[in-house]
């Protein structure tokens, strides 16, 4: 069976690409520290030596739209073109092309449906920065085949937080039951507290540093009990109006497993939002702990 060699959860900051590649007067003062942290984070994936990446993210009204909105969607295609005109325009993101791993997509869809998740699928999916940002930070060669999994954290009504956790737990079992010798890393991106298009946006820190502190603690210690006790669809409005993206971190806590302490934890306090990076090496893998 396949092995999960790393579980990685991260924020997906679309400004990283431009900040890290800019020079001279255009280079922001925080770019050097940010780049150092990303290179250290990247090493946590590189050392796991994965063959395939399962990538959990959320479409930002690019291909998925309100006339036909899935809650959870799995890409099943041989290739995925990536990034969109408005992401080039606002963030300077490059166009990319990623290979797909269709056998694993088919396995996740079949087993997910049989495990109680009525997963939508797409045979032609152009992915956006929720998946390309972690490719840029963690695997800039973009040379490994992927299975994209999109969640709806954006267009209410949303699934409950507990549903994200359960899907993560299911993905863990499903990948580990894939009849393959390949080494799989599961990578998911979300947000800590975040405000977009509201009065608290673009402040000197994230809109709710106290939420961020508690959230990092929940993730780093695998504390799903307290996280699920405190986080509800209603409560997530309070830290910032885009904070429902935190549910993708909860999904990744489900993949890592209740009580699983992260082997690698790092954060970076930026304007607008806090960056956070977590890596787990499942005990059955050869990744070892840091």
């Amino acid at each position: 069976m396949a092995s999960i060699v790393a579980v990685i959860a991260s924020t997906h900051h679309p400004f990283y690409y431009r900040a890290s590649t800019s020079t001279g007067e255009d280079r922001p003062p925080f770019a050097d520290e940010w780049t150092r942290k990303i290179l250290a984070f990247r090493e946590t994936l590189t050392r796991a030596n994965p063959d395939v990446l399962v990538m959990v993210g959320s479409d930002h009204f690019h291909q998925l739209w309100l006339d036909n909105m899935p809650q959870f969607l799995v890409g099943k295609a041989p290739f995925y073109d990536a990034n969109w005109y408005n992401e080039e325009r606002e963030f300077g993101l490059p166009r990319m092309l990623l290979k797909g791993q269709e056998d694993l997509s088919a396995h996740i869809l079949r087993a997910g449906l049989d495990d109680g998740f009525d997963l939508a699928f797409s045979n032609e999916l152009r992915i956006d920065h929720s998946i390309t940002c972690p490719i840029i930070t963690l695997r800039p060669e973009a040379d490994l085949p992927i299975v994209p999994i999109y969640t709806n954290i954006f267009a209410p009504p949303l699934p409950q937080p507990s549903r994200f956790v359960k899907l993560g737990e299911s993905i863990r079992r499903i990948v580990e039951s894939w009849p393959s010798h390949l080494r799989v890393a599961v990578i998911g991106t979300g947000h800590l507290s975040l405000e977009l298009g509201g009065p608290r946006q673009f402040g000197p820190h994230g809109p709710d540093p106290e939420f961020d502190r508690r959230a990092v603690e929940w993730i780093a210690t695998g504390d799903l009990d307290n996280c699920l006790r405190e986080v509800t669809l209603d409560s997530l409005h309070s830290p910032g109006n885009a904070t429902h993206g935190f549910m993708d971190f909860m999904l990744m806590m489900g993949v890592a497993g209740a009580g699983a302490k992260a082997d690698y934890v790092d954060t970076l306090d930026l304007f607008h939002t806090m960056e956070a990076y977590f890596t787990w090496y499942p005990s059955s893998s050869s990744g070892g702990s840091l």
């Binding site: 267009a155 209410p156 509201g198 009065p199 673009f202 409005h237 309070s238 304007f271």
Partner: peptide, 24 residues
């Protein structure tokens, strides 16, 4: 940098939680 984004937020300073419902 961010001049427009900050002004955009400042113009909305009178909104308190809960914000208007965005469910469609």
């Amino acid at each position: 940098p961010l001049e427009y984004q900050k002004a955009y937020g400042a113009r909305m300073a009178h909104f308190n939680l809960p914000y208007p419902d965005i469910a469609t």
